[in-house]
């Protein structure tokens, strides 16, 4: 348990016409349903246990002060561009939301309040993939409707790096 944890806040958006097509909005609904599943709640519990009070504290904060880090934003975007390789194309064979979105019947089910839950098999596949990658994640919906995901890197292969605050790393760069 670590109550002194601080968090780096990263805002992500889709490229292209995904926003205007309504797909982005449906994706958010999909994430809400995914993270409200029983399976995802178990993952959330482990994050809460690991982060302790820092978890609730971070969720309750309306707006934390911080320092814009354009260098890291550019670095991540560069990494994301590079990953549009065959490896990523292969991953896209497993695009579960895409399959649901494109499937008219499933799309209708998504809109149907009676079928608000995502099929357990889909939830398990996605959470399993997250575990494979070494991440635990939970999602909260803010008062204004915005989604916030707290992601914990379980690999922590470079412990020394993790112990260095971000602003000190920037000074060293």
């Amino acid at each position: 348990m670590n109550n002194n944890k601080k968090f780096i806040s990263v805002k992500i958006s889709p490229k292209g016409e995904v926003v205007t097509s309504g797909k982005w909005s449906k994706f958010k609904d999909f994430l809400k349903k995914l993270f409200s599943s029983n399976e995802a709640k178990k993952m959330e519990a482990s994050i809460k246990e690991y982060l302790g009070e820092a978890y609730e504290s971070e969720l309750e904060s309306k707006k934390r002060s911080g320092v814009l880090n354009q260098k890291t934003a550019a670095e991540i975007n560069n990494l994301l561009s590079q990953s549009k390789s065959d490896k990523d194309k292969n991953n896209r064979e497993n695009i579960l939301f895409e399959q649901i979105y494109e499937d008219k019947k499933a799309d209708a089910r998504l809109k149907n309040a009676q079928a608000s839950a995502i099929e357990t098999e889909t939830v398990l596949k996605i959470l399993e993939k997250a575990k494979e990658l070494g991440f635990d994640a939970s999602l909260s919906v803010k008062d204004d409707g915005q989604l916030e995901i707290i992601s914990v890197d379980q690999k922590k292969s470079d412990k020394e790096y993790l112990d260095i605050p971000a602003f000190l790393r920037r000074q060293a760069d």
Partner: peptide, 22 residues
């Protein structure tokens, strides 16, 4: 992790902003 979300969405995602803690 963002690539993981991108894989679920089936579209490219980009980072708008990174804010480090004070």
């Amino acid at each position: 992790f963002i690539g993981f979300l991108s894989g679920i969405l089936g579209e490219d995602l980009f980072v708008e902003q990174v804010v480090d803690p004070t």
